[in-house]
Amino acid sequence: MVRSTPLWLMLVLLFSLALPCWSADSSVVVIANKNLENVAVNRTYLRSLFGMRARTWPSGAAVRVFVLKDNHEVHEKFAKSILKTFPYNLRKIWDSRVFSGVGASPTVVASEAEMYERVSETDNAIGYLTRGLAGPGVKVLELEKI
């Protein structure tokens, strides 16, 4: 007896196809200004850059770091999935540099739209965005597997 495919099975199939795409688009990626030289980034390097320890690119130009607010969900995703840490730890690292005179804090932007705009306009800038929002104005720095 031939039965038509049940609706629930079709839905499951549909979502299992859609899910990887959906999660890829909402995942967070590291972005940089388009004019930035090609640099290979792994997690250790990103931690040095976003931790405001490494202040110059290999070319010698000063790094410009952009971040969202501490409690922004994309910031939290970035901290956890890319840097493998927590927003409170980043805040602690920045504060300890800023208030002991050995470093600047990253520039805080209010939204992902502003992040896109500022990184695309600023030479030597680095930031992060939801993958689906990383348009042609910026380049995506793919994380090297360590």
Partner: peptide
């Protein structure tokens, strides 16, 4: 005043 001898990917 701080003078930076070097500052790169893996050291400062």
């Amino acid at each position: 005043a701080e003078y930076v001898f070097w500052d790169n990917e893996s050291a400062s």
